[in-house]
C-alpha cells in the first residue's frame, strides 16, 4: 500500500469517527431535547428504572461489601506496620468515595446494564420493532431511547452511593469486628477526614458523568447495530469495552480536575 493510501485510510477513519460522534449526539439530542410527556413517559421510566436500577442492585451491593472488606484487610496489614491502624477508616472511606465507588460501580453497570441495553435495543432493531414504531407514528427515540437514558442517569449515581455506603460498612466489619480497631476511633477519625464538598459531592459528580457516558454508549451501540445476530453480539462487546475505557479515561481527567491542584 502506498503512502497516499495510508493517508487516505487515516482520513477515512477520522471522518467516520467524527460522523459517529455526530450521529450519537443527534440520537441523544433527539431523545432528550424535547419536552417529555409525563403521563406517557413516567410508566416507561419506572419500568426502565426497574430493569436498569433494581436489577443491578444485588451485584452492586455484594461487590461493594466485598471490596470494602478486602480494602480494609489489606489496608490494616499495611497500616499496622506503622502503628497507625486507627487511620483505616479514612483510608477505606476516602478510597471508596473518591475512586472505587464511582469507578467500580460504573464498570459493573456497563457490564450488567449497559450490555443488556445494547442487546435489547439491537434486538428491537433487528426484529423491526423500531421501524414498526416509526410506522405507527411513534418516535422510537422518545419511546425507547429517552426512558432508558434517564433511567441510567438516575440509577448509576444512586448505585454508586449504595456501593460506597455498603463498602464502608464492609470496612467497618473487618476493621472493627474482626481486627479489633476501636469503633469510636474508627468513626471519629473517618468523620474528621471525609469532607462533604471535596468527597461526597465529587463522588456524585463523577458517577453522574459516568452514568451519562455509559448509558449513552450502550444506547448508541444498540441503535446503530447491524441487524443480525453477529452484529448484536459485536455491539454488546463494544459497549462493555468502550464504556469501560471511557470511564477509566474520564476518571483520570476528573480526578486531575478535582484533586490535581
Amino acid at each position: 500500500m502506498s503512502l497516499i493510501d495510508h493517508i487516505a485510510n487515516l482520513g477515512r477513519n477520522a471522518i467516520a469517527l467524527v460522523a459517529g460522534f455526530g450521529r450519537a449526539g443527534l440520537m441523544l439530542w433527539g431523545a432528550i431535547a424535547r419536552v417529555p410527556n409525563l403521563a406517557k413517559g413516567t410508566p416507561l421510566l419506572i419500568r426502565q428504572l426497574y430493569v436498569v436500577g433494581v436489577q443491578s442492585m444485588v451485584i452492586i451491593l455484594v461487590s461493594g461489601l466485598f471490596i470494602g472488606m478486602v480494602l480494609a484487610l489489606q489496608g490494616y496489614n499495611i497500616l499496622v506496620g506503622f502503628g497507625t491502624e486507627d487511620s483505616l477508616g479514612p483510608m477505606v472511606a476516602l478510597s471508596l468515595l473518591r475512586e472505587l465507588g464511582p469507578v467500580v460501580t460504573a464498570l459493573l453497570f456497563a457490564g450488567r446494564a449497559g450490555s443488556a441495553l445494547t442487546a435489547e435495543i439491537g434486538l428491537m432493531k433487528s426484529t423491526e420493532q423500531l421501524s414498526s414504531l416509526e410506522m405507527m407514528a411513534v418516535d422510537p427515540l422518545r419511546q425507547i431511547i429517552a426512558p432508558r437514558f434517564w433511567a441510567g442517569v438516575i440509577s448509576l449515581p444512586l448505585l454508586a452511593l449504595m456501593f460506597t455506603a455498603v463498602g464502608i460498612y464492609g470496612g467497618h466489619l473487618v476493621g472493627v469486628e474482626w481486627k479489633g480497631i476501636d469503633s469510636g476511633s474508627f468513626w471519629s477519625i473517618l468523620q474528621s477526614s471525609v469532607e462533604w464538598r471535596q468527597d461526597i459531592v465529587n463522588c456524585l459528580i463523577k458517577s453522574t458523568v459516568f452514568a451519562v457516558v455509559v448509558t449513552w454508549i450502550a444506547l448508541y451501540r444498540g441503535y446503530q447495530v447491524i441487524p443480525n445476530p453477529e452484529g448484536i453480539s459485536k455491539a454488546t462487546t463494544q459497549t462493555v469495552v468502550q464504556s469501560s475505557l471511557a470511564v477509566l479515561a474520564l476518571d483520570f481527567l476528573l480526578t486531575a480536575m478535582m484533586f490535581g491542584s
Binding site: T127, Q129, S131, S132, M135, M136, A137
Partner: peptide
C-alpha cells in the same frame, strides 16, 4: 400524521416483545 393513516405489517411481525 400521514403515518397514522397507514400501517405496515413487517415480515418478522415486529411485535413488541
Amino acid at each position: 400524521k400521514l403515518r397514522k393513516r397507514m400501517s405496515m405489517l413487517f415480515q418478522s411481525g415486529a411485535l413488541f416483545t
